[in-house]
């Protein structure tokens, strides 16, 4: 098996405007990696390209050595919001849909995660808070057995307790060889669980470094991340 993710010379335009340019990124197996960048830096776009939701890009995107979209989708787990489901949909029905769609979806694993997150399977989306929806997204995402997991800003707009639950679930349910890419515009709250950070700026990856290497220079991961944006403000 190759690396969970290999991106080469990626360029992506939307309405004639470059969103991503000359982006290269390789992630090794067994890592928890943060994808950091300001709002609008292209983090969500990148996740959508990796997962095959966004098309018409230039360059190569490989997930576990597979470049074709369908193969990539089979080797990564990404829940692109829950926007495809009507507000009246119950958790149970979403689970049924996932079982049909993904052969690697484990109901047993989902039930464990659902209980851990204190979610009631009879609940409808309309009855759920933002934090609960985010917990459901995490539970669905981790119930599949894949090489790569993509979490798009799971911590935005949720309370501290929900955040702790999500962070603990990442530690508990990550398989040894699988890699998690988690985007955020904030790093402090998850710094201790990260292996690496990838910083996106000026439409490309401007830094990819191990968190322990950053700390070995007596710098906090947050300071390190902020220094990339500080320079711009000083100019």
């Amino acid at each position: 098996m190759g690396n969970p993710l290999e991106i080469t010379d990626l360029v992506y335009k939307k309405n004639q405007k470059k969103i991503i340019t000359d982006l290269n990124l390789t992630l090794k197996p067994g890592k928890i990696v943060a994808l950091l960048g300001e709002n609008g830096a292209g983090k969500t776009t990148l996740m959508r390209i990796i997962s095959g939701v966004a098309k018409n890009y230039r360059g190569t995107v490989k997930v576990a050595s597979f470049a074709k979209e369908a193969d990539r989708k089979a080797h990564l787990s990404f829940t692109d919001g829950l926007t495809g489901f009507a507000n009246s949909t119950k958790i149970n029905d979403i689970v049924k849909f996932y079982q049909i769609l993904y052969h690697d979806f484990s109901l047993k694993q989902f039930e464990q995660l659902r209980k851990f997150m204190n979610l009631d399977s009879d609940m409808r989306l309309s009855e759920m808070s933002k934090g609960m929806k985010e917990k459901l997204v995490i539970a669905l995402t981790f119930s599949r057995k894949t090489d790569l997991y993509l979490l798009d800003e799971p911590f935005s707009g949720i309370d501290a307790m929900a955040r702790k639950k999500i962070i603990k679930s990442i530690i508990l349910w990550k398989q040894e060889k699988s890699t998690i890419l988690v985007s955020d515009h904030f790093v402090n709250e998850i710094a201790a669980v990260l292996d690496e950070v990838v910083i996106i700026k000026n439409k490309t990856v401007c830094m990819h470094k191990s968190t322990e290497a950053i700390r070995a220079d007596n710098q906090s991961v947050e300071e390190f991340y902020e220094s990339f944006y500080q320079r711009e403000e000083d100019e």
């Binding site: 890592k31 530690i171 508990l172 669980v193 990260l194």
Partner: peptide, 17 residues
Amino acid sequence: VRELAVQLTVNVNTVQR
């Protein structure tokens, strides 16, 4: 290793090291 990682809320690889 995993128990320690959860208890301390840190990365499994870091505990391993």
